[in-house]
Amino acid sequence: MKKTKKNKAKKITPLKAIVFTVLVVYSISIIFMLCWGFLTSLKSTIDFTDFKNHFGLPDSKYSSDEMLFANYGYIWQNFQLNVNGNSYYSLFGEHTVPTYRANFLTMLINTAYYAGLLAFVQALVCMTMGYMTAKYKNKFAAVIVGTVYALMALPIVGSQPAEISLLMDLGVYNTYAGMFIHKFNYGGIYFLVFNAFFTAMSDTYIEAAEIDGASQFRVYTSIIIPLAAKMLVMVYLLYFITAWNDYNTVLVYYPSFPTLSYGVWRMAQSNMGGDSDTQGVPQKFAGTMVLTIPLLVLFFSFRNYIMGNVSTGGVKE
């Protein structure tokens, strides 16, 4: 056995070498982009744009006002965008969402709500439904699971207009409540992942708890949630990451509640306008780094959770 392992380690085939080289080049390209973005975010606009110092270290000769982390301070103070209100007809009458000017804190709060809280709600709903359909075997549960499979298999395109119309009818389009309702859903791959997880789980714990007199709710909160906590955290982190980066959904369904990703996208596309023109490329890059660095911190802190369990239809502990 040892001899086989040694041989395996020593044998470098041309294919392996090519694959290794491609992976090295790929990795360098990713790391280069991130490092370049961060380095640029430390420069002044004069340095990067006017004197075309695209790859060098920040040159302190040009303006002490926009150096090093000053761009991040600028983002914190001046990251603002005009959010236009809108009005529409719901079943309960005309509904108006007012206009206002969103600053960094507003976007941070919206992000905390959307990516922080609602992602957790979504993970919790997936977990709960996965448990209920796995452990409460009845026809209704089978229909629930079957429907999810069927809708995932059917490539139905273009139901966003109908979703928007439904949210408008309920009078919750473009509101915090609407965001909550919209995200309170279990459709998707992670519901099936939880379902498979709970199906494989032994009933022993549950039955023992019931024998001891625990209610269904108590069984769920005291036994099931702790057992599934790792899985819940993994799914939550994946939802969090998706929601953190998601500006498309915000743009379409909740345009009056810009998140950080939406704000960064707007800033990168054009200037914010008004008193907070972020016209410099270094400032735009600082904005992207504001979006990136928390994710990198999260990723490296929870790497095993995020990467150890990334698979379609597979579950690992």
Binding site: M33, W36, G37, T242, W244, N245, D246, S261, T288
Partner: peptide, 11 residues
């Protein structure tokens, strides 16, 4: 993990 915006802007 980083999503679209960051890498698109840099690119």
């Amino acid at each position: 993990m980083l999503g679209g915006i960051v890498l698109v802007v840099l690119y």
